Computed example of a mutant assay.
Amino acid sequence: MNLNATMFVQSIVFLILAWVVAKFVWPPVMGALDARATKIAEGLAAADQGKQAMAAAEKRVQVELASARDEGAKRIADAEKRAQMVADEIKANAQAEADRIIAQARAEAEQQVSKAREELRSQVATLAVAGAEQILKREVNAAAHADLLNQLATEL
C-alpha cells in the first residue's frame, strides 16, 4: 500500500470523524458545560443572596435585641418607679397614722390634765371651806391662823 494513499484515507477519516464529533458530540458536551456553568453561576448568586439575607437578618436580630434590652430596661425603671411610689405612699400613710395617734394622745393628755385641775380646784375649794370653818370655830389668833394656813398649804 502506498503511504500517500494511507495518509489521504486517514485524513478523510479524520475529517469525517471531526465532522461527526462537531455535529453530534460537541453540541451536547458544550450544552452540558454551559448548563453546568449556568448552575454554578446561579449557585454563586444564590450564595451571595444568602449572605446578604443572612447579614440583613443579623442586623434585624441585633435591632430586635437592642429594642428588647431597651424595653426591658424601661420596664425595670417603671417597676422601680412604681415601687418607690408605693414606698412613699406607705411612708405617708404611716406618718399620717402616727400624727393622728400623737394628736389623739395629746388630746387625751389635755383632757386628763383638765380633769386633774378640776379635781384639784374642787379639793382646794373643799379644803378652803374646811380651813375657813376651822378658823371661824376658833378664836381669832394670828399664830393659830398661820398654823392652819401652813397646814392647808401642805395639804394642797
Rank of each mutant, 00 (worst) to 15 (best):
A35P: 00
V129G: 09
G50T: 09
A41E: 15
L15H: 01
E58P: 01
L17A: 08
V113L: 15
I12H: 05
S67Q: 15
R82K: 14
V86T: 12
Q10R: 00
A105F: 02
Q111D: 12
A56V: 11
D48N: 07
A32L: 09
D70S: 12
L136S: 14
I135G: 02
Q134F: 09
D99R: 03
A32Q: 07
L148T: 05
V63L: 07
N141C: 10
R117G: 07
A32H: 05
A68P: 08
E97R: 06
A130P: 02
Q49A: 13
E155A: 12
A18V: 15
R100T: 12
E80Q: 09
Q123R: 09
M1D: 07
I135L: 13
I76S: 05
A37L: 08
A107C: 03
K81Y: 12
V113S: 11
A35C: 02
M1A: 09
D48T: 10
Q112E: 15
K23F: 11
E108M: 07
A132T: 06
R121S: 10
L17F: 06
A96Y: 03
A107R: 05
A87E: 12
R106Q: 14
Q49E: 14
G72L: 07
A125P: 04
E58V: 05
L44C: 00
K51N: 05
A18I: 14
A37C: 00
A57Q: 09
I90Y: 03
R117W: 08
L33A: 04
K39Q: 11
E42L: 09
M54K: 01
R36H: 11
A109I: 13
K81H: 13
Q10C: 05
A18F: 11
A68W: 08
Q151A: 15
L120D: 13
K59V: 13
A153T: 13
L120G: 09
L17C: 03
E89G: 12
A146Q: 11
I76G: 03
E80T: 07
A53P: 03
K59M: 07
G31D: 15
W26A: 13
I76C: 00
A87W: 02
T6F: 10
E155G: 06
G31M: 10
